[in-house]
């Protein structure tokens, strides 16, 4: 069995918002378990507001107000032993973990590059934020080598961000984020703002990084199941701050177990014959307000199979065999 790289156990992180005199608590991530193994590309899918991006920040322990880490543990396995990220200080995380063990490509990172700085300056700034002393020439040489490995033109290093096309810019961001060879790369919606042709190139870049052993595994966060499906070996589905199902990509797509996954997959148009005749379905209603989530299973108000039990008791995550996990009373043996 492949080595475990990351164990996230029962984490919860809430946003605290001051509304007048009272404090509103938004339970963005509420009791999530996640395991990541070597060579895995784990896709995390879910709708907007389901807690995907918050989960990414929790994995990095990049907790900034108004986000608050409530409970749980985040442990990563390094070459020698393990690190418990939830008990480290920001300074320790910055020098030991971020960029070196886990790197994050935040959503819209490619559009956040300073337009007046050349890619080269951006590379130096990134490395400088993780290492105290750097040799500029060495770093630039290393970056040029990495650009070559990933099929990017070396001259891009001497260009400004706006001189590169969207796809190229995103691939450059990926190359820069992985310069320190992190074990785990978390990419948040890395291909969402791109046209489909560049999207494909970006996905290929992740593959290349894994193939060349630059990184050990990827967490790929997206709302677009059809895209995640193209790259992920395994998939997690998030709904209202919880993971409701996990499985290998092929199985999860072909035979979704959780009613939410079933509804979500049934609602996606795809340019495949039969879709027009079969007619797409949709999930009635809308995702819950996470400051006041429904009791029991959080999906029960929209679920076509709701039973009495669903309204009062939260379903546990059960293993139904073959690495498939699902949190739904329909699949709990009683």
């Amino acid at each position: 069995m492949a080595a475990n790289l990351l164990s996230v156990i029962n984490v919860a992180a809430y946003y605290r918002q001051q509304v007048g005199t009272s404090i509103k608590t938004i339970k963005a991530v509420d009791g999530v378990d996640l395991y990541l193994y070597e060579k895995e590309i784990l896709g995390i899918v879910g709708e907007s507001g389901s807690g995907k991006s918050t989960l990414a920040n929790v994995i990095l322990m990049n907790i900034k107000k108004p986000l608050e880490f409530v409970k749980g543990s985040v442990r990563i396995y390094t070459g020698n032993g393990f690190l418990d990220l939830n008990s480290m200080s920001v300074e320790e995380l910055r020098t030991k973990v971020w960029g070196k063990e886990i790197a994050l490509i935040p959503q819209s990172a490619m559009n956040a590059l300073m337009p007046t700085l050349k890619i080269k300056r951006i590379i130096l700034d990134v490395i400088r934020s993780h290492q105290d002393r750097i040799n500029e020439k060495e770093v630039v040489e290393k970056a040029a080598k990495r650009f070559r490995e990933l099929g990017l033109p070396e001259k891009a290093i001497d260009m400004y961000p706006f001189e590169l096309s969207g796809g190229m810019r995103q691939r450059a961001v990926i190359a820069v984020a992985t310069l320190l060879n992190p074990r785990i790369l978390i990419a948040d919606e890395p291909s969402s703002a791109l046209d489909v042709v560049s999207q494909r190139m970006v996905l290929k870049t992740f593959y290349d990084l894994l193939r060349k052993n630059i990184i050990k595994s990827v967490i790929f966060i997206s709302h677009d199941i059809a895209t995640v499906r193209q790259i992920a070996t395994d998939m997690c589905v998030m709904y209202a701050g919880k993971i409701v199902e996990r499985g290998s990509t092929d199985e999860l797509i072909r035979k979704p177990l959780h009613p939410y996954t079933e509804g979500l997959i049934g609602s996606i148009p795809s340019v495949e014959p039969g879709i027009r005749e079969r007619k797409l379905k949709y999930i009635p209603g809308q995702p819950p307000d996470l400051s006041n989530p429904p009791t029991g299973c959080r999906f029960h108000p929209r679920c076509p199979y709701t039973m009495k039990l669903c309204k009062v008791k939260e379903p546990p995550m059960v293993n139904v065999g073959n690495k498939r996990l699902v949190a739904c009373w329909l699949h709990v043996k009683r």
């Binding site: 489909v196 042709v197 999207q199 494909r200 996905l203 290929k204 593959y207 677009d224 199941i225 059809a226 895209t227 499906r229 193209q230 790259i231 092929d250 797509i253 072909r254 997959i265 996606i268 795809s270 340019v271 495949e272």
Partner: peptide, 16 residues
């Protein structure tokens, strides 16, 4: 042709 080939499909996987 290029567009259709690059549209991600739900039940078919690309070879990357």
């Amino acid at each position: 042709k290029r567009l259709i080939a690059s549209v991600p499909r739900l039940y078919q996987k690309w070879t990357l």
